[in-house]
């Protein structure tokens, strides 16, 4: 159930954002959206590394801030230079986002499949190994 905590935090964040007295300037909205995309990518990467047990808080946090800020900064630079780097960022983070999502999906499917197999093998074992279920001898 640990995964409920981040989801709860997401909604809390939305609430906090709605009630915070910060108004984003109109020109910054575009960069804010690309920063959100980068941040989402970071979260998906974090969930994936968590499932793969390669999670590192420092890498995760630094990646979150660096990706979001750099994406926004690059998009801004692109606007100044007249090159639409915005779309490059959208493309890169979009591709990575879907890649991470598919890896997470694979992992979850494998997880459940393995558990099913494990359960099935548990049922095959003739005398109860776990001890919770009464053994044949006890019943008789």
């Amino acid at each position: 159930m640990w995964w409920l905590v981040p989801i709860l935090a997401l909604f809390l964040g939305i609430l906090a954002g709605q009630h915070a007295g910060i108004q984003v300037p109109a020109e910054m909205v575009k960069y804010l959206s690309i920063a959100i995309l980068a941040a989402l990518d970071s979260v998906m990467g974090g969930v994936r590394s968590l499932l793969e047990r390669t999670f590192n808080s420092t890498i995760m946090l630094s990646g979150f801030f660096a990706n979001a800020l750099l994406a926004a900064l690059l998009a801004y630079m692109g606007d100044r230079l007249g090159v639409d780097l915005y779309y490059a960022a959208v493309f890169v983070f979009g591709v990575r986002l879907f890649d991470n999502l598919s890896k997470i999906r694979h992992f979850i499917i494998n997880f459940f499949r393995n558990r099913k197999i494990r359960r099935a093998s548990d049922w095959d074992g003739s005398p109860a190994v776990k001890g919770s279920a009464p053994s044949r001898e006890e019943v008789l």
Binding site: I14, A16, V24
Partner: peptide, 11 residues
């Protein structure tokens, strides 16, 4: 991070 994303998204 989820909290911050939520905040950004709301903004």
């Amino acid at each position: 991070i989820c909290f911050m994303i939520g905040g950004l998204f709301a903004l």
